[in-house]
Simulated scan of single mutants.
Amino acid sequence: MAWTPLHVKTHRTIRSRHLFERNQHLLVAVSGGQDSLCLIKILLDLQPKWGWYVSIAHCDHRWRPDSQANAQHIENLAKNWGISFYLETVETQEREAIQTEAAAREWRYKVLSKIAQQHNYQYVVTGHTASDRAETLIYNLIRGTGADGLQALTWRRPLVDGIMLVRPLLEITRTETGQFCEDFQLPIWEDSTNQDLKYARNRIRQELLPYLCENFNPKVESALAQTAELLQAEVEYLEKAAQELREEAMSKEEDAEKGKHGDAVNLSTILSVSECQSVPVSSFSLPLKLNRHVLQKAPLALQRRVMRQVLQQILPISPSFEQIEKLTALITAPNKSQTDPFPGGATARVESDWIWIRGYL
């Protein structure tokens, strides 16, 4: 079969971004919509070139009366293509817990990870597109977020140990996947919930993006997706620089401080940065301290990232902008300045050249 421009584009993306290795096992999440059908068709067509073992997984939330028929439709496609099919259906007792988009997404990734682990797949592959990336950027911007939220939907990220989540279509728009499905007569199963305007993402997709496209930029989806791509590289750089600054600030100990307040926990001497981020909060102890002189030399952007990283390790919930600002302000605050308690009971206080964080986790 002759490759289309989408085949060529996806092949080049996979190769240039090192998304997959050859001869790997790929578990492709297929909902039945145009994006996931486009994805599975392209991967199957590229399979002889790469030597992959490709299979389909479908997650049934049981949100719609036709969900079982949808699952059967996808299983029939898998049989026609001669590939393995895995189905996960939400249990009755779980249905109440996954009524929001965020909860449903978390459930999907959990069950996809389980399938991949049980059947030795190295990759879970999803059909997120440039259009999804644009919607996510707008959605997070409206809710209020920094660069990290705006660059969401990355090409690759770890799901669980040994399994990578990959999104090969992030440079392809929904218009392109729709045309691809039409050209190859792929049987799309329309999801009625995608038309329900009670969901914010559907309002962005159905109302806001078409308005922006008509009145501001006909290629707004691609432009926003490119912005997310630029932000991704910048966020990775800033996060690494902040980790290095945090390690330096936590390792600058003075002899006069030793023994004065007990043994301060220096996380950078216990674990590597990557290990710190994956260890449960309960594994850390307070107090811990940060050298203000080290932090004062850094730009505000890095100061905030250091404080966010610290709060991510000691708080039971994700830190808010206000909490990060509260801790960042201590870098230049007068001696003896102190915060009110953070969630979980920890407080931060300036003592000479140091910010001490004490309390309970």
Rank of each mutant, 00 (worst) to 15 (best):
Y109Q: 10
D263L: 13
R157L: 10
G178C: 04
V235D: 00
D35I: 00
W3K: 09
R292N: 12
A298C: 13
S113A: 14
H18P: 02
S222A: 07
L159G: 03
D60A: 10
A242K: 00
E171H: 12
P299D: 14
K49T: 15
V124H: 02
V90T: 13
I56D: 03
E171W: 06
A256P: 00
I83Y: 03
S55I: 06
H18C: 05
F20T: 02
R157W: 04
W189V: 01
P280H: 06
L290W: 08
E275I: 02
I317C: 14
L209T: 12
D340E: 15
I138M: 01
E135I: 11
M250I: 12
I74L: 08
K114S: 10
A200H: 05
K260V: 07
F321W: 10
P210H: 12
T89S: 12
N335I: 10
R157H: 07
V54F: 06
R156K: 15
L330A: 15
I74T: 06
T92F: 08
Y86V: 05
P158G: 13
S16P: 03
Q151A: 07
A249V: 04
H11A: 12
E88G: 01
R22L: 06
N120E: 09
V125F: 06
P5G: 05
L6C: 03
H119T: 11
A103L: 13
Y121F: 15
E171R: 07
Q72H: 11
V306T: 07
R174A: 09
L46W: 11
L150Y: 04
P48H: 08
W63A: 05
Y86W: 10
A71F: 06
Q338A: 12
Q338E: 15
Q99R: 15
S251F: 04
Q296K: 13
T129M: 00
I98F: 10
E351D: 10
P168C: 02
R174E: 12
R12D: 14
G127N: 07
D191C: 07
K219Y: 04
A348Q: 01
I355E: 01
S278Y: 01
T175L: 00
P343Q: 08
E171I: 06
W354H: 08
C38L: 01
A228S: 14
A348N: 00
L37S: 07
D66K: 01
L230T: 05
R22F: 12
S320E: 11
L46G: 10
K252L: 08
L315F: 09
C276Y: 08
L238E: 15
I172H: 03
E88I: 07
N215L: 08
E325R: 01
A130C: 11
I163L: 03
I314S: 01
S16C: 08
R95M: 15
A225H: 06
A104G: 15
E325F: 02
A152T: 13
